[in-house]
Design a protein around this nucleic acid. Structure first.
Lengths: 137, 137
DNA sequence: GCTTGACTTGGAGTGCACTCAAACTTCTAG
DNA sequence: CTAGAAGTTTGAGTGCACTCCAAGTCAAGC
């Protein structure tokens, strides 16, 4: 297990800030990271992979609280895979519902945009036919 | 313009709490609502429609700050449709990116779930072939 | 040795989006 | 007329997810 990346290198690679990396470790989302002799963090490749997965969870709006539970289960080893799978499955149900809600809402925004285009076109027409600026009714 | 619904009726219809409806009004997301003689709010059908649209914006994670700008533009009348359309268009770009990110992340979760299933199956097989409970390695 | 810059810690602070509290006033049913 | 439900206001409080600060440590270059 290679252990070589500094906190700022990991920040650059993951897009998380060094602040947030320390915060995640303090919160128990990341297991205590290996340290160089002087106490500085040295992240292993496996840490990077785990942080990547945490980012997938964050992208799907899993709360820190749920991630804490998930990380704790992960720390308990292979025996906790059923619980972890169930957590992901029920989270995925919510995520898919949320994606559909966003898609529906996005279509409503699209419709509103079209509506505005129509209004703008008719205002433009009014200006052209009367030869004056559109009044403010 | 019918003006008849009380705040709790609107809360029931929209899923927002009465607290939140007052907060939105104070924040300028909803224009001052008509009042009954005693000062109680009486929402018109047009208010309901607007609140519905605000909910679409909220579902797509538009911030209160942006909604305030949008609501202010709306209050300025038809002349502001180009700005409103541009706001929605650029917001929609973000929303679509966010939907795609969530979909990618959801596929990663799905893959992890499959991975867990595989692990569970092999643990189960080990238990069956050896006739004992899975040890904790 | 000294400076510079990257790192460490615990605790405090920030911004967002609500959410509630306190002290009222008003409406409705009996 | 009265009880109680429902509404009003302003300002304060909450929970989340960071984000920053102060005071200190450590390694490398001059």
């Amino acid at each position: 297990m290679e252990s070589h990346l500094s906190i700022n290198e990991v920040a650059a690679r993951t897009g998380l800030s060094a602040h947030t990396l320390r915060y995640y470790e303090r919160a128990g989302l990341i297991a205590p990271v290996a340290r160089a002799p002087g106490g500085q963090r040295r992240y292993a490749t496996s840490d990077l992979e785990w942080i990547g997965f945490l980012l997938r969870l964050r992208e799907t709006r899993m709360s820190i609280g749920h991630m804490q539970v998930f990380a704790r289960l992960r720390g308990e080893g292979t025996g906790s895979t059923p619980e972890r799978r169930q957590m992901l499955e029920s989270h995925l149900v919510e995520v898919e519902a949320s994606i559909e809600a966003m898609q529906r809402a996005a279509r409503a925004l699209q419709a509103k945009i079209e509506h505005y285009r129509t209004i703008e076109a008719s205002l433009q027409t009014a200006t052209q036919t009367t030869g004056r600026k559109a009044p403010c009714p």
